[in-house]
Simulated scan of single mutants.
Amino acid sequence: MAEARNTGSQQGSREERLRAALRANLARRKAQARARADNEEQAETAKSDTGETEGDE
């Protein structure tokens, strides 16, 4: 039963850890989205430079 009760400082430190984890996760997701967008843009640029279209194989 003692484990079920959290003191104010324990609850606060848990919330801080969760906030930090959420911020790190958001930053990682944003970086992944930027990398995907950059890769798509580079692929489109390369296709236009070679004269290829999406239907060409």
Rank of each mutant, 00 (worst) to 15 (best):
M1Q: 11
M1H: 09
M1W: 13
A2I: 00
A2G: 06
A2V: 00
E3M: 14
E3I: 00
E3Q: 10
A4T: 14
R5L: 14
N6F: 04
N6R: 15
T7N: 11
T7E: 07
G8Q: 13
G8R: 09
G8L: 06
S9F: 09
Q10R: 15
Q10G: 03
G12L: 10
G12M: 12
G12I: 04
G12E: 08
G12V: 05
S13E: 13
S13H: 06
R14Y: 04
R14I: 15
E15K: 02
E16H: 02
E16Q: 07
E16D: 12
R17S: 10
R17M: 09
L18K: 05
L18M: 08
L18Y: 04
L18F: 02
L18W: 03
L18E: 14
L18Q: 15
A20E: 15
A20R: 00
A20T: 07
A21T: 04
L22G: 05
A24F: 13
N25S: 12
L26F: 01
L26N: 08
L26Y: 06
A27P: 01
A27S: 09
A27K: 04
A27F: 00
R28G: 08
R28K: 15
R28I: 06
R29P: 03
R29W: 06
R29Q: 15
K30V: 05
A31E: 15
A31S: 11
A31M: 11
A31F: 01
Q32C: 06
A33H: 03
A33P: 00
R34K: 10
R34Q: 08
R34A: 14
R34N: 05
R34M: 08
R34S: 12
R34T: 12
A35N: 03
R36P: 03
R36W: 13
A37T: 09
A37M: 04
A37K: 06
D38H: 15
D38C: 14
D38A: 15
N39D: 13
N39K: 12
N39G: 08
N39H: 08
E40S: 14
E40N: 13
E40R: 10
E40Q: 11
E40V: 02
E41C: 05
E41W: 00
E41G: 09
E41A: 10
E41H: 10
E41K: 11
A43W: 02
A43K: 13
T45Q: 09
T45M: 11
T45P: 04
T45A: 10
A46N: 06
K47R: 14
K47V: 00
K47Y: 04
T50S: 13
T50W: 10
G51D: 03
G51Y: 04
G51S: 01
E52W: 07
T53P: 05
T53C: 12
E54A: 13
E54S: 13
E54D: 09
G55R: 03
G55Y: 05
G55V: 00
G55E: 14
E57R: 12
E57C: 11
E57G: 08
